[in-house]
Design a protein around this nucleic acid. Structure first.
Lengths: 244, 244
DNA sequence: GTGATACATATCATCCTACAACTTAGCTCG
DNA sequence: CGAGCTAAGTTGTAGGATGATATGTATCAC
């Protein structure tokens, strides 16, 4: 299980809390684009923390391109388009509606990923994907290890596209979903559902081996819709691209 | 033009430089997953800056999920899958190969975005999209204003999907591309190219009005491939989904 | 009265020191 | 030999001091 528990149990540090507060205030629109933040001193008084803590919080927001600090003047909220990073609010994912949307995005990325991978994969890629598949099926029940293998399977497919950005984006989205589900304890499906899940993966793998992009895309689409259903998320009807 | 120049001309602050250095050391693999970073004091001596500056740098990396700091022990490099944010290295985009890949990702996202938007758009969405289109065509030459309108056009389409994550991801990718191109001064295409560009947008808009997902997707795909070509990036052949 | 210069103020940037909280390893003592 | 304690190392937080930069104000020359 490695050190993952340590990561989950991370204490909320003061700068993190301050950053989260400001970030939410910006997202919610209480601080509009162009608005000036309170001075560091005011913030440190307001939150009852040292100016050092406030600065660390602001450093985070600045790195994300949410605000811009100008010496001698103050800090200002930047336009949403200027963000230098994508970040997903874990809280928001507790709303099933949002989880649904995230699954939809994942479906888009992974469907095309499977399609491209089918066209571009080499033997080494197939080997890595197969290895993940075996690890997944090797487990008796659906546990931490199986989930790791599951995600690895999807990441390896993304890697087979030869496009590192696709890999990065898919890894990110999958991980967000995984952690949210883990947190909500939606996991641990019944045994027969596990077999269905593995079966769906096998179908994707077969299409990759055959080098058939359309089949791979269809199989991936079906799998993700199925995976969403299994954790209680009903995906809206996608394009009927599978049906002729 | 607003305040954008200020954002571009942002000075490189010390914490930013330290963070960039450490970040690069992690990406390059010099600091592997699980490795322990030097202590804050060692870092502050190494870079010749105060411990405060080092802490701000570490705060950024921590917020991104690149490292995990544990009181009393030290800071450790986390696995790439655990990243809490997506960030794109602007430097890497100077390599045409990477730009190509980013365009490919954009194509995937936007094609599906157009398809979904065609199926789900309301009148208000069409109005916003049309407004952006008019602003784009209104300009004589292809300047800052036209580019803004261009991006807005794509963002509004993404908004019409009703999926905020799709909107976020597309906005982000487009902005990264825009800024890289702006930086490389690849812009300012010839006049006839401008007309081609606007024409492509009109075709997308018409498909959205008609509520035809397949046509919208095809038009968007053609447009992005064209846009890439116009800045000197040749996209690899995508799926031939348009051609039956 | 008007314009330019110098000054005072506000704010962020950086540095410094000190202490608290936490972890580990080693040592003491029963 | 083992349990508990101590000491050292590291990150977390606090608070103040100084430098750099932008802005507004007052002063002074004309």
């Amino acid at each position: 299980m490695k050190q993952r528990l340590a990561a989950i149990g991370t204490v909320e540090t003061l700068p993190h809390r301050v950053a989260a507060f400001l970030s939410r205030e910006i997202e919610s629109g209480e601080l509009n684009t162009g608005a000036r933040l309170p001075t560091e001193q005011e913030l440190s008084e307001k939150f009852g923390v040292s100016r050092n803590v406030v600065r660390e919080a602001i450093a985070q927001l600045r790195a994300d391109g949410m605000i811009e600090a100008r010496q001698g003047i103050g800090a200002f909220v930047l336009a949403p388009e200027q963000r230098a990073a994508i970040r997903i609010d874990r809280e928001a994912l507790k709303d099933t509606h949002n989880m649904e949307r995230l699954f939809e995005l994942r479906c888009i990325l992974e469907a095309e990923s499977a399609s491209l991978a089918a066209a571009r994969r080499g033997q080494e890629h197939l080997d890595s994907i197969k290895a993940a598949l075996d690890r997944m099926g090797g487990e008796e029940r659906w546990e931490e290890g199986s989930i790791d293998a599951d995600l690895l399977f999807h990441r390896e497919i993304a890697r087979a596209t030869g496009n590192s950005y696709i890999h990065t984006f898919i890894s990110f989205v999958c991980e967000q979903i995984r952690q949210s589900i883990h947190y909500a304890r939606m996991t641990n499906p019944l045994h027969d559902l596990v077999e269905i899940n593995v079966g769906e993966h096998v179908r994707i793998y077969d299409a990759l081996v055959a080098g058939d992009p359309e089949a791979a895309e269809a199989a991936m689409r079906a799998h993700i819709i199925g995976a969403a259903n299994r954790v209680g998320v009903k995906l809206p009807l996608q394009k009927t691209s599978g049906a002729k």
